[in-house]
Design a protein around this nucleic acid. Structure first.
Length: 880
DNA sequence: TTGTTCACG
DNA sequence: ACGTACGTGAACAAC
């Protein structure tokens, strides 16, 4: 190696086994489709890319021991005599790792008779002498002895799921361990290291070892002054075991003068993202990492068929052919970030891709706005296409409607919604996920925008047929066609309507809360005798349960629980606790509702929230930005906020909510005679249950008995457990179990039904609602008791909660349709699971009430009556 | 980002 | 012996 040839260039040296080991224990078990374990390889690559990104080195080499070492973790277990089975899952990833690194063209080094430590030590020394900057990556602190001014040791640590890296130059070692890297060896020689089979000197630990070396630098020098060493215990130990210390030092010293051939140039980093690497990443299903590849290896030849068109006449011709196709996949691109719904007409289309089959030939065309083709013209052409008889397949139709007002309910297929129905448990349904999962088409890598759009359109085109078939196979085609797709448009209308909010009154309400908060704060600090952040569970826990010594209840992972149910038990005895509860309540109202809602009020005094159709596991709708489904009602102070939700001038609110829809569904599905009878006779169901469960005449049921029975009824719907019920009612588990037993004696059909659902779920892996909606229950096959119990509760709850959601969706579609067909100006503005809020024109109120009642009560025909209660008011508070 | 708390059905 | 009621979303603190 010629002198200073590589001056100021940088090399990264990696301790292969050690990093692989770290990655393995830092990540949950991952396997690819073939069942290969991949977590260690995946973790290694992530750390590798992170380091390369930060260091930007010219050279890279990964060192391995020739024989896979017994991993540190296992040796420790062995030493403790509690050895666990060999981590075969890790062992099998070693050759895999090497293959992947080779595919990326990375220099590997391993030498019989030399440990990776020695290879790295020697290389780091040689490279430093060649004038290079050296970065050593290892999970092992032994390598700290290699640190110099130019050799940086980097040690990745997994901290709460994320990897952080500790960096050590020579000075950093000194700072942290009080000794130089060279002296670090001597410290270790004294203290020993069981995991590395370094004996050390008995009775000398880290503290004493460090003290001795700080004073004497080496064990040899320490031995020369052995009589002076304090404490006497250490002095004696060193005198007796000096040989051991010398031997330990030898063992602990990394050889930096090993003899093996190596040319720096061999480690030069080339293109890591080779075709071979891409294939490996695909096989191992590292889809996040595929994005790093510049080159796209086409999964098949479709990309060759992509075309880009910018000429208006040609665009017209393409869309003309599309209009006569059976199905057209469309992907639209807009210019600006999503606008507020009210002004969304301002979004401009910048391009669109279309995929379809014409005369037996597939076309995938990207049309670009610009030059002679205007946004307006393109949008017009697209509108004409959506008016044709072709089935239009898109992703997230509601969003495209907001941007461009395209599509008709009659001929549209929303891939997003279809993918959700097929598996409602996923957290996202990106077009690329759909392509990979259903079309076996991996779309990754850095692609031009046009190509991305082509792929998306192609996915929509192919996806429509494939997803439809899957929906049909799983009995959800009618649910999709008759409920979910029409609902897209009902939700769109609802979002467009928005809801009016009195901004000034909301502000006044918030200010009033602010005054109360300040007052409470002062009082709490007074009672606590100190000031602290009441919003911090950690600080609050410290004040209550440590400083003030209040009896604490259960603990959370991070400390004492300060949840309301714990504090409520203390409130009667400690005034500070009830003040805190009050503070919490009011602070929540101010931050989340008063201040939170104010953000969303537009210039027209309306709030336009988003209602999501593809979020919940059960089929319910969810609401965000803001969440309009959790506006306070239970407590009077919070309930006041509903007064700021108002209908516009000349309108009133009509609110309609289902009466106990879930219990009625339970009655229907379980076919339980007594429950059906009770509902048919329009009896007070909680009182009836109380009367039966507590063997008390109907007329003599006490309020407490009724309240308890109500909790049991709720519990049944949630998938009852005696523990849950006992918590809710503050009774013993035994008593709760008795309530449940008596409930099931009263309603044997319910017991049979719930058991049946669990059995079905165990056999098939999913449950369904009466409308065919599925929810997978993977937890049921878990070996973990907790998980499995959760699965059982889910199996009992989902068919009921899901059916209620289905029924409400049907009602919404029909109500919305009738409001429009009957040319009314009234609109649904909010849905809260079993409740619809309608902004109704004064003259239309009676008609709206009739429509709501009729459509809600007849949305499904059950064995018991379905009842919806109506109420009219000048704000949401009054209309409830 | 993750955990805790709490608002709703 | 385990440690829970079912389904959501937002604010805040702390890592």
């Amino acid at each position: 190696m010629s002198e200073k040839q590589f001056q100021d260039q940088k090399i990264v040296l990696i301790d292969g086994h050690s990093i692989l080991n770290r990655a393995f224990y830092g990540l949950p078990d991952l396997t690819n489709a073939e069942g290969l374990h991949t977590n260690a390889v995946y973790g290694f690559l992530n750390i590798l890319f992170k380091i390369l990104d930060e260091e930007k080195p010219e050279f890279l080499t990964v060192a391995f021991d020739v024989h896979a070492p017994t991993f540190r973790h296992e040796m420790y277990e062995e030493y403790k005599g509690t050895r666990k089975p060999m981590a075969e899952e890790l062992r099998e990833q070693v050759p895999l790792m090497k293959d992947v690194l080779k595919a990326m063209g990375i220099r590997l080094i391993e030498k019989a008779g030399l440990e990776a430590d020695d290879l790295i030590g020697t290389l780091s020394r040689r490279c430093e002498e060649a004038g290079m900057d050296v970065v050593v990556l290892s999970g092992d602190r032994d390598l700290l002895q290699l640190a110099t001014k130019k050799v940086k040791i980097r040690i990745p640590k997994t901290k709460g799921g994320r990897t952080e890296v500790e960096d050590y130059l020579a000075a950093d070692v000194k700072e942290k361990y009080q000794v130089t890297p060279q002296e670090f060896i001597d410290v270790k020689a004294l203290m020993g290291d069981t995991s590395d089979n370094i004996p050390g000197v008995p009775s000398i630990g880290e503290k004493t070892a460090t003290k001795i070396i700080v004073e004497y630098q080496t064990i040899e020098n320490a031995y020369a002054h052995v009589e002076e060493i304090k404490p006497p215990r250490a002095s004696k130990a060193l005198k007796e075991h000096y040989d051991m210390a010398r031997m330990s030092k030898e063992l602990a010293t990394i050889n930096v003068h090993a003899d093996f051939p190596y040319e720096v140039e061999e480690g030069r980093i080339g293109n890591l993202f080779t075709k071979e690497a891409y294939e490996w990443f695909q096989r191992l299903q590292f889809k996040n990492l595929l994005g790093k590849f510049e080159i796209q290896v086409p999964a098949n030849a479709i990309e060759d068929r992509f075309r880009t068109v910018t000429d208006p006449a040609e665009a017209q011709a393409v869309l003309g052919r599309a209009a006569s196709a059976k199905t057209v996949g469309i992907a639209l691109e807009k210019n600006r970030e999503n606008m507020l719904p009210l002004f969304s007409m301002g979004s401009e289309i910048t391009g669109a891709a279309f995929a379809f089959s014409h005369d037996g030939k597939e076309e995938v065309v990207s049309i670009l706005v610009g030059g002679t083709l205007t946004a307006e013209a393109l949008l017009k052409q697209i509108s004409a296409l959506t008016e044709s008889r072709a089935e239009i397949s898109m992703f997230d139709v509601k969003q495209d409607m907001k941007n461009f007002r395209v599509c008709r309910p009659e001929n549209v297929f929303d891939v997003h919604v279809a993918a959700y129905l097929l598996n409602p448990l996923k957290s996202s349904y990106e077009p690329n996920d759909v392509a990979r999962e259903y079309l076996d088409l991996t779309i990754d890598g850095k692609l031009s925008e046009e190509k991305k759009r082509c792929y998306e359109a192609y996915t929509m085109y192919q996806g429509a047929a494939i997803l439809r078939e899957k929906l049909q196979e799983s009995g959800m085609e009618a649910l999709f066609d008759e409920i979910e797709m029409p609902l897209v448009f009902a939700l769109f209308d609802m979002e467009q309507a928005g809801v009016k909010v009195e901004a000034r009154e909301l502000k006044a309400y918030g200010e009033e809360l602010g005054v109360q908060i300040e007052k409470l704060e002062t009082e709490i600090f007074e009672l606590a005798g100190e000031e602290f952040n009441i919003n911090s569970p950690k600080q609050l826990g410290a004040v209550l349960f440590e400083h003030l010594q209040l009896p604490h209840g259960k603990k959370t992972k991070t400390g004492y629980s300060t949840a309301a149910d714990i504090l409520e038990k203390l409130a009667p005895d400690y005034p500070i606790v009830s003040k805190i509860l009050e503070y919490r309540q009011i602070a929540k109202l101010k931050s989340t509702y008063a201040d939170g809602l104010a953000h969303f009020i537009q210039d027209d005094n309306r709030i336009y929230g988003t209602f999501h159709q593809t979020v919940t596991a059960t089929g319910r709708i969810s609401s965000t930005e803001p969440n309009l489904q959790n506006i306070p009602i239970r407590m009077e102070l919070g309930r006041q906020i509903r007064k700021v939700f108002v209908p516009k001038e000349g309108f009133q609110f009509v609110d309609a909510d289902y009466s106990q829809i879930e219990l009625r569904i339970l009655a229907h599905c379980s076919d339980d005679e007594a429950l059906i009878q009770a509902y048919r006779e329009a009896k007070d169901i909680h009182r009836t249950t109380a009367s039966q469960v507590f063997h008390t005449p109907f007329e003599e049921v006490t309020d407490l008995q009724r309240r308890n029975a109500k909790a049991v009824n709720f519990g049944i719907v949630y998938g009852i457990s005696s523990f849950g019920l006992s918590q809710d009612l503050s009774i013993t588990r035994k008593e709760a179990a008795e309530y449940i037993d008596r409930y099931f004696e009263t309603y044997p059909g319910v017991k049979k039904y719930l058991d049946g659902e669990v059995a079905f779920a165990k056999e098939h892996g999913y449950v369904t609602t009466m409308f065919g909606r599925r929810r997978p229950v993977p937890e049921l096959s878990s070996s973990n008791f907790m998980q499995r119990s959760f699965g059982e509760r889910v199996a009992m709850n989902s068919p009921i909660q899901g059916a209620a959601a289905d029924i409400m969706k049907i009602a919404m579609i029909r109500v919305n349709r009738r409001l429009k067909e009957e040319n009314l100006e009234s609109r649904i503005v909010i849905q809260v699971h079993d409740e619809l809020l309608v902004e109704a024109k004064n003259e239309e109120v009676e008609q709206v009430k009739a429509i709501l009642k009729e459509e809600m009560e007849h949305a499904a025909s059950l064995k018991v009556p379905l009842i919806a209660d109506m109420s009219v008011g000048a704000n949401w508070y009054e209309a409830k």
